[in-house]
Amino acid sequence: MAIISVHNLRKTYGEKVAVDDVSFAVEEGEIFGIVGRNGAGKTTTVECVAGLRAPSSGVVELGAGLTDVKEQIGIQLQDCSLPDKLKVGEALELYASFYSRPADWRALLDEIGLDPRVAFAKLSGGQRQRLSVALALVGNPRVAILDELTTGLDPQARRDTWDLIERVREMGVTVLLVTHFMEEVERLCDRVAVISAGRVLAVDTPDRLIERAGGGQRIVFHTTGPVDALTALPEVTTVQRNGDEVVVTGTGDLLVAVVGALTPGQVSGLRTERTTFDDAFLALTGNAPASS
C-alpha cells in the first residue's frame, strides 16, 4: 500500500513554474528515488510532500496511519545547518525533545558514529550529513526525506552515507531520496521517479529503466583471431570490430555464449559492461546539457 501518493502536483512562483505536473506513489518500506538535474523541481516536490510548501494545485495523499506530517515525516533539507557551537549530543537531545514519541537519540548517535562532544562547526561535510540524517530520524518517523544528501562529499564519505541509508530502511523507515547522482540511484533505490522540467518522465525500478533504455550487456575484448562465429549465436545482437578490439552486444547468457565460441589463447583484456542508470537517465531526459 502506498504511504505517500502525489497526484498532479503543481507549484508556481508567480510566472515561474517550479513543478509542472508530478505524480508518483511511494510504497511503505522502500527507498524511493527522485532524480533529475538541478532545477528540475525535485526539492520543491518533496517540500510539498513534507508540508513545508502548499502546492498551487494537486494533492499529496498520505497513507493510513500517517496523520501528522511534522511528527511522522523526518526531513533533511539542503542548506540547513546548526549553530556553530552546538555539540552533536546536544543537537540530538534537543531535536528529540521536539517530538512526542522520539527515537532513542543515544542509539542514533551510535549508529552515525560521531563523538557527542564535538561542536557542529568542527564536523566534516560527511559528519554533518550523518548528523543531518540522524536529526531526520530522531522523531521516530515513518518516512524520511533526504535531499541531496551526498552532494559535495568525498567518495568514502558518500559510501558511508549510503550504508547509513540502507540501515535506515532496515529500521523499517520508508526513504524518499532526492538526488542527481545516478550511481546513488542504482546502488540504493528500489524505485525511482525521473523528473525533468517539473514533469515525471518515468517511474520504475532502476533495472527496468536501464532495460528500457536499450539495456543489455556489452562484452569488450582484444583478439587477433576470427570472430565471425559470434554473429551466429542467438544471444548476440551486434559485433563490432575495430582493429584488435571487438565489442559484442546482446542479451541472456551472452558472456557464457561468447567465451564458449572464442579460440582459447587468443583473447586478452576481456571485460563486460552494462548499460548504467546514467545511460538510462540520458536516454530519458534527452541530450539537454546537464547543469550538474
Binding site: D68, L77, F98, G139
Partner: peptide, 16 residues
C-alpha cells in the same frame, strides 16, 4: 545568522 544558515528552516521541519 540562524536564518542565513538555515537553522530556522531546519526547525520548521519539526513539530516545534
Amino acid at each position: 545568522t540562524y536564518r542565513e544558515k538555515g537553522v530556522l528552516r531546519r526547525m520548521s521541519t519539526t513539530p516545534v
